[in-house]
Design a protein around this nucleic acid. Structure first.
Lengths: 323, 323
DNA sequence: TTGTATGCGTTATCAT
DNA sequence: ATGATAACGCATACAA
């Protein structure tokens, strides 16, 4: 910067003003701009950050970018952040609570302006010194959270299964230590079924995080209900992944899906080649979630921030329900 | 930091030494550590970075994190970086050359220690002031590049199709402005076919980046070759995505895949639910690529860096080849 | 070994 | 409006 000042024959302060678009004499501005170009000068964000204690950087904590939902969400968060001139420090936590805590500390140390976190740590300490927006999980009363409207999603699934003519339905989900807001999918579903007088039961599996194990446990559970009979004619699954597993198992029992059983999942995962939904599903508004999270994070007046923002879901038609 | 010094009753320098694990009196160290804990002190990376002009941060430029290959790669890069104590500044470029250039500038301004880029900009300027590792594309003679061994992948595909008894084979790929190292898939395939005396032809499609358009163009091309006949009994596709499109089209023509036609793709994309390969495929060693890229980036002696690192691929059995 | 002083690149506060 | 100077938090060279 002082090179620029020397080259342009002005003082440092003047250069700074030009950079920050503060009023400055036209002649000076020209000279400075020319010098900047000539020397290929770039401001040093670290010096700026040190001085201003504002870094235009946000941290994103996410389990991974491999799962389609997380990958898409990470992408959208990144875009929303970029669009507002923010850089994105990405941390993949792999569901590891200790990593989550460590990364929060790293982010703090890195003086990020805010953190967006999709976390699974029940005792994650969110320091007051930085603004934090949670996704899909309420961390505490003063940390804003944005998620899909999971309750409405459950209701919507019930409505669809009812419309498809189902007479007795089942809800299945995987249970991990923290399901965040997603438990509302069940309440919404039950609520919806009741309003349609649709008999409804539910079952919760332990999430082993190993697909084949999960599938084995699932098959064992489903066998007495669906082998040679059909205890339910409609199933609402907590995630699309689960819906696909259930579909495969039922088909292996000789059932038709759809037909004998209608299945609806949750998330809105699309096949990467056909870009169609991998199953009939309640679609999360991923882009809107990302945009809302960034918006909340970058708001000045955090006081007026609503604690929980539930964004509307839609039904996505896939190949596990009759049309 | 000076709060810590005061609390511990020592000088600033001492605190700094404790933090950086420099030799310091044991008594002092204890006091300082206690003070740090008590005040919940964290070093300010921005001050550190300003002083040391070393930020322990790397930038990753990638088209997106939505595509399974990119999502997985981004994840692996992130992990490799984290494992070495580096933070990851993620930039999604959406294949946009001007965004790529802009993000390189942003990264530079942000004083990253290095950049890992999977880019599509033919005239991307890579400044000498920062170390840069390219993935899948040779940028210039002094920028290291790591990719799969695309040539060997082509050979391997030829070998497999030959072993499957194919008598006449076809290579199809999509062409975008820059295909980087991936054009070698064709050369390797041709080379392999020649050594097996396997007649081989090839076709290149313009990549519209819109799947349905691509599929329409593809169908039009394939129709005279495969409708009511079978001009080739084996197809090697430049990507898994393409392989899936081709498979769907051939099936819609009434052909059996595998059986009438054997198809092999490239990338190693797995179904997110079953975790099986979505098609028979040449598998890219994504984790190794990420690890190698990070390793190259963080090397001190960039002089001895090989310009191009080709990592071995493997065959992944999917449902588009007979077993 | 421990403490002190200087400078990293920038911005903001002054006096000019 | 412009130019000099201090301060941001830390690391390091140097003095004690």
């Amino acid at each position: 910067m002082k090179d620029v000042a020397r080259e342009a024959g002005v003082a440092l302060g003047t250069v700074s003003k030009v950079i920050n678009h503060k009023p400055v004499g036209e002649e000076y501005e020209k000279k400075v701009l020319a010098a900047i170009k000539k020397l290929n000068y770039r401001v040093n964000s670290y010096a700026q950050g040190l001085k201003a204690s504002r870094t235009h950087t946000a941290a994103v904590l996410i389990p991974n970018t491999t799962h389609p939902y997380f990958g898409h969400l990470a992408n959208c968060l990144n875009s929303s952040l970029s669009a507002r001139g923010y850089r994105c420090l990405m941390f993949c936590t792999d569901y590891d609570p200790s990593l989550e805590t460590e990364f929060v500390n790293l982010a703090l140390q890195h003086k990020v302006d805010g953190i967006i976190g999709l976390t699974y740590n029940t005792n994650l300490v969110v320091p007051d010194e930085v603004s934090f927006v949670s996704i899909d999980r309420i961390i505490n009363t003063h940390t804003p959270c944005v998620s899909s409207d999971n309750f409405a999603g459950g209701q919507l699934a019930a409505e669809k299964l009812h419309a498809l003519g189902c007479k007795k339905v089942l809800f299945i989900r995987m249970w991990s230590a923290i399901n965040g807001e997603t438990y509302k999918r069940l309440s919404g579903f039950e609520y919806g079924c009741r309003s349609y007088n649709l008999p409804c039961e539910s079952h919760t599996l332990i999430d082993t995080h190993v697909i084949n194990e999960t599938k084995a446990v699932l098959a064992k559970y489903l066998e007495p209900l669906f082998k040679g009979q059909c205890a339910y004619d409609g199933i609402f699954c907590g995630t699309d992944l689960l819906a696909l597993l259930v579909r495969d198992i039922l088909v292996s029992f000789g059932l038709s899906v759809p037909g004998d059983v209608e299945i609806i999942g949750f998330d809105g995962i699309k096949d990467f080649a056909t870009e169609e939904y991998v199953c009939s599903t309640i679609v999360q508004p991923v882009e809107d979630i990302a945009e809302a999270a960034v918006d909340l994070l970058l708001r000045d007046n955090l006081d007026t921030t609503p604690p929980l923002l539930c964004l509307p879901v839609t039904f996505g038609e896939g190949k596990t329900t009759s049309s």
